[in-house]
């Protein structure tokens, strides 16, 4: 079986600061890592490989050269090889341009299953997976929390949807996005870490993919961030510095009573 896992490199901190004037991230010592939610996609792929001999897992990412590291994290969990789509012209891509680039690379390649995380912890859109599937013309199963059965031509999964679980099946090849509950990703061991470190990541630029420039990067992105700002939400509320906890409790009780909320 041929499996593809899509991963993304994300900043490894929650405290990304923004320059409000330019709307860009202040990259002071910004560390990055594989999107934590992609670990579940990688783990699920590796588990299939452990059951099905002859399975090959290819990790694919689009991003700057430094995203090699995220791919190597995936390899250290048991994937076989890595491909990085990297080109200065890919920079600034939104979900559509990203999905388009990924799908152009995948078109014509042999694969049975594509795995992706539910969403990335930086953008939090969760759109690239379903978009890639649509552009490749294959079915997509989102929010999968359990793979029930895979046969030669079909896959049956359980999806975590509002208020419960849905069991549904579709044909292969297809794209699966997984949620946290699906598994407990393994810690990579030294042997796999060293293998990943030595492994050569295939970098592919647009010289090779030859996608029209108006379909990639910022140019190919239908959505634009026009402004980034720290929200100034205000409720003309009352702020009291209390002298005793008792005072606080009285204030709270009065407020509740006054507004009649309970």
């Amino acid at each position: 079986m041929n499996i593809v896992v899509l991963v993304k490199q994300v900043p490894s901190t929650d405290n990304v600061k923004i320059d409000e004037k330019t709307g860009t991230m202040i990259r002071s010592e910004l560390e990055s890592e594989m999107n934590p939610l992609d670990m579940y996609a990688v783990e699920e792929a590796v588990r299939i490989k452990e059951k099905e001999t002859g399975t090959k897992i290819t990790v694919i990412s689009m991003g700057p050269l430094s995203a090699e590291y995220a791919i190597k994290e995936a390899i250290s969990m048991g994937c076989d090889e890595g491909v990085l789509l990297t080109d200065r012209r890919y920079a600034g891509a939104d979900t559509r341009a990203t999905a388009y680039t990924l799908s152009q690379f995948l078109k014509g390649k042999e694969f049975d299953l594509i795995f992706a995380g539910e969403r990335a912890t930086d953008g939090e859109t969760g759109q690239v997976g379903p978009m890639v599937a649509t552009l490749l013309g294959i079915p997509v199963l989102t929010y999968v929390n359990k793979i029930i059965e895979i046969t030669k031509s079909a896959i049956k999964v359980q999806r975590a949807i509002e208020g419960g679980n849905e069991v549904i099946q579709t044909t292969l090849p297809s794209l699966i996005t997984v949620v946290k509950e699906i598994n407990d990703p393994r810690l990579p061991n030294l042997e796999n870490k060293l293998r990943a470190k030595k492994s050569k990541i295939h970098t592919i630029t647009n010289e090779e993919l030859k996608i029209e420039e108006d379909k990639i990067g910022l140019k190919g992105s239908p959505t634009r961030v026009v402004k980034v700002f720290y929200p100034k939400i205000s409720r003309q509320g009352e702020k009291i510095t209390i002298k005793t906890p008792q005072e606080a409790v009285s204030k709270i009780k009065n407020f509740i009573k006054e507004k009649g909320v309970i």
Binding site: T223, V226, V228
Partner: peptide
């Protein structure tokens, strides 16, 4: 103009579709 929290939810972004 579409407004949503961005970048780990630290800031808000205004987004426009072309």
């Amino acid at each position: 103009i579409q407004i949503r929290p961005a970048i780990g939810g630290n800031v808000m972004a205004k987004i426009k579709t072309m």
